[in-house]
């Protein structure tokens, strides 16, 4: 399928997405869209269905409804084909290959790329983005600190040079200083042209860098608005932003 040129569709278009796990509904008729160039935040408390939404988009969870990426019907794509279309996903819990070196992890991120010089070029960009990774390239990934593992997970997703990068709680469990680094990187990636769909518990901070945001509650979409409007919305603030970690 060739990329559609002008269908009037957003880069990522999720419509009426429903996912069940063994009879239990995790998502019910969820719709969202991400336009090219945006940072979109996807918020909600534990178990709201954020991760499930991303997993469905990547083809890792069976769903009903539809997901279109760049005009392609993702229902017809296997997870590896979704990646090839340019939809990257740094999953919840990092999921780095702990038994491999940092370099091997990054090489796997560019699995779909055959050209060695292109892989080296992307690797140079990733280590420029996360200098901490450079000196650890031949270290076993399992021995990295939590923050370094998160950098590796994001760096690995960047190696596929995605048009849209989905990040599932990239700041989870990190020291405030590292959280700042990660948010800074997300912003600068976006400025360089990567569209971002950001799942975060750290709602305040996510909304501050997001163009728009969505709030999920027990599998259903509750709010959709611009980042600043959601920040000022008292109903959202009371239910979700208050729960954000302080500091």
């Amino acid at each position: 399928m060739s990329p559609s040129t002008s269908s009037g569709q957003a880069l990522l278009e999720v419509r009426d997405l429903s996912v069940s796990y063994g009879g239990i509904r995790a998502l019910r008729d969820v719709s969202l869209r991400v336009e090219e160039g945006e940072i979109v935040a996807l918020l909600g408390s534990n178990g709201a269905g954020k991760t499930t939404t991303l997993r469905a988009a990547s083809g890792l969870a069976p769903y009903s409804g539809s997901v279109f990426f760049d005009g392609n019907d993702l229902r017809k794509c296997s997870p590896d084909q979704v990646v090839r279309l340019g939809l990257g996903h740094a999953p919840e819990g990092r999921r780095i290959f702990t038994r491999m070196t940092v370099r091997e992890n990054l090489a796997l991120g560019a699995y779909t790329v055959r050209s060695n010089s292109e892989i080296e070029r992307r690797l140079a960009f990733v280590v420029e983005t996360f200098p901490r990774l450079e000196e650890r390239l031949s270290q076993s990934a399992g021995t990295l600190s939590g923050g370094e593992q998160q950098m590796l997970a994001i760096g690995r997703a960047l190696m596929s040079a995605p048009r849209l990068l989905m990040l599932d709680e990239p700041s989870l469990g990190l020291a405030p200083i590292v959280v700042q680094t990660i948010f800074g990187v997300i912003k600068s990636l976006n400025e360089r042209g990567t569209t971002i769909l950001l799942v975060e518990q750290n709602a305040q901070q996510a909304l501050r860098i997001a163009n728009r945001g969505y709030v999920l509650e027990t599998g259903e979409m509750r709010f959709e608005d611009t980042g600043s409007a959601l920040l000022e919305n008292p109903a959202v603030a009371q239910a979700y932003l208050g729960a954000a970690p302080i500091g």
Binding site: S78, R99, M100, G109
Partner: peptide, 18 residues
């Protein structure tokens, strides 16, 4: 490398495009 990745974490391997 793809085989080792699949052995360690099947979902993560798929997210690499394997």
């Amino acid at each position: 490398r793809a085989m080792r990745a699949t052995a360690e974490d099947r979902d993560a391997a798929q997210l690499m495009g394997i």
